[in-house]
Design a protein around this nucleic acid. Structure first.
Length: 506
RNA sequence: GCACUAGUAGCUCAGCGGUAGAGCAGGCGCCUCUUAAGCGCUUGGUCGAAGGUUCGAAUCCUUCCUGGUGCACCA
């Protein structure tokens, strides 16, 4: 605390020297000083607006050109453009634009002087009457105005735009000021979560919260972030999934639960991966994966219809339909469709590996028939799945938390949903047999001990929970960021995460 | 982690061995019914960083930093 105080004067010096260095900021600091000298507070407390821009545009849409009303309104927002030396000012709020008409006939000498102390980027509140100019622009004939927040830094110019991707991610607020599209994307992100939540709530689910800090990070194959708790002198992991805790709640009698939360995985960054991302996981007692696919389909359709107004949309030039029934395809059949090879005829790791070699698929992870099948699927079939497709019946070896298939040996009742060749969701009939679960997790733990840092740890309390008895349960995880990418036609996951993970500068 | 690619004024870009440029933004003045944009004049740069080659480097070479795209990892 005392350290901060001693540093305070130094910070003040920095601001001054920056002003010397940056002439653009310096010009604005001069205007700020001028405002203060004129007795104006450039950072006041509030403004009572009567209308948002969009409301006025709508209300006066039939007002003819050149017609003035006597209707007095108060509007406020950020100045993004100015023409004819502040005669015309484009004021933007979160609904849209309204033009201010600042004619000298309607303003005092002092007000005209104040007008010259403004900059693009400033927040302004204006009072005046509604009129439409001869050229057809709805405007406020300003009779009074207040500075609501002085801006000290220049915005990118609106004509050439703001295209430096790095700058847009690092300074998202500028990106959002300049690009209404970006604001719209994040509004849709919010709505996506809202309607998913509403759908689940309407189906009697309870929203819950489970620990982010965990002693062992389980529930998925991924490397975790490590952190440290000082008071306990304890190494902790950031969660890589919410699954194991949500299932404990099902054991506890909460029959329908879900969590929408941040997940952390210590993996590479790409257009489809951010180290922290948002996942919706839900668990529902007494259902199986067949029912879960029906449910998922309905939920996604509901979300799309409410966010977009339609369940059919275009993603990166590809028409995607959430309206039509989603195709359901066994993994082995997907491989057969893609390659002509029937892995169902193989029985051993070696037989499967021979086919992989024949297809030129490298199997770099795992040494079981299931791993080979999965590798072939991922390399040969996955990218073909453009329209929503449930790939069902996965190999047991890559699914340690999933119930064995009721009729196909070696398989589990699991599906993944693919859209545009990308995984969007992962669901299954949950494994509820504690003896089977213990055996599978012990197998995982031995792999972990053997050096597989993505294998799951042995969570004994999770097994104990299951030993108390668990009902048949269906459960799914949906990648929210990827869903938002689809609904907003965003090419990169960074476009749907307001503050994506970036390396620090210098 | 690997490959390719980029970094020049506040923004968008040109320049690719010979004195750092343009448009917009900014400043000053005039102007007051404009829509990218009234008119005139004008300020503005560690060319991402550090080395090297050269008489001379924004430009060529090396290393590093930070992005983007693809691959790998993964969801």
């Amino acid at each position: 605390m005392s350290r901060e105080k001693t540093q305070a004067p130094k910070q003040a010096e920095t601001v001054t020297s920056e002003a010397d260095v940056s002439r653009l900021k310096g010009e604005r600091l001069k205007k700020l000083a001028l405002l203060k000298e004129s007795g104006i507070n450039p950072y006041p407390y509030r403004f009572d607006r009567t209308h948002k821009a969009q409301v006025l545009q709508e209300k006066y849409k039939d007002l003819p050109n050149g017609v003035e009303t006597q209707d007095e309104v108060k509007v406020c927002g950020r100045v993004l453009n100015e023409r004819n030396t502040w005669l015309f000012v484009d004021l933007w709020d979160d609904s849209g634009k309204i033009q201010l008409f600042c004619h000298k006939d309607n303003l005092t000498e002092d007000q005209l002087k104040t007008l010259r102390m403004l900059d693009k980027g400033d927040f302004l509140g204006a009072t005046g009457t509604v009129r439409r100019t001869n050229k057809g622009e709805l405007s406020i004939k300003v009779t009074d105005f207040q500075v609501l927040g002085k801006s000290l830094l220049p915005l990118p110019d609106s004509w050439s735009g703001f295209t430096d991707v790095e700058a847009r991610y690092r300074h998202r607020y500028v990106d959002m000021i300049i690009h209404p599209q970006v604001r719209a994307t994040f509004a849709k992100r919010s709505q996506t979560i809202r309607y998913m939540r509403r759908f689940l709530d309407d189906h009697d689910f309870l929203e819950v919260e489970t620990p982010t800090l965990q002693v062992e990070a389980g529930g998925a194959d991924a490397r975790p972030f490590v952190t440290h708790h000082n008071a306990l002198d304890l190494e902790l992991y950031l969660r890589i999934a919410t699954e194991l805790h949500l299932k404990r709640l099902v054991v506890g009698g909460m029959e329908r639960v879900y969590e929408i939360g941040r997940i952390f995985r210590n993996e590479g960054i790409s257009t489809r991966h951010n180290p922290e991302f948002t996942m919706m996981e839900m668990y529902c007692a007494y259902g199986d994966y067949n029912e879960l696919m029906d449910f998922t389909e309905k939920m996604l359709r509901y979300v799309a219809e409410n966010v977009l107004g339609t369940a059919e949309f275009s993603y990166q030039g590809q028409e995607i339909s959430f309206a039509k029934p989603f195709r359901r395809l066994r993994m082995l059949d997907a491989i057969k469709e893609a390659t002509g090879k029937d892995l169902g005829e193989t029985e051993t790791y070696q037989q499967a590996l021979d086919i992989a070699n024949e297809l030129g698929v490298k199997v770099e992870k795992g040494n079981t028939r299931g791993h080979v099948i999965n590798a072939i699927f991922e390399e040969k079939a996955e990218h073909l799945l453009q329209q929503p497709t449930f790939i069902i019946d996965y190999p047991v070896e890559i699914s340690p938390l999933t119930k064995a298939h009721r009729s196909n040996p070696g398989e589990v009742e699991r599906f993944e949903l693919f859209v545009y060749g990308r995984e969007l969701a992962n669901g299954y009939s949950e494994l509820t047999d504690p003896l089977d679960q213990r055996a599978r997790l012990e197998d995982q733990a031995s792999k972990k001990a053997a050096g597989d840092d993505e294998a799951m740890p042995l969570d004994l309390d999770f097994i104990m929970a299951m030993e108390y008895g668990m009902p048949p349960t269906m459960g799914i995880g949906i990648g929210i960021d990827r869903l938002v990418m689809l609904l907003t036609d965003s090419a990169s996951i960074r476009d749907v995460i307001a503050f994506p993970t970036m390396k620090p500068r210098s």
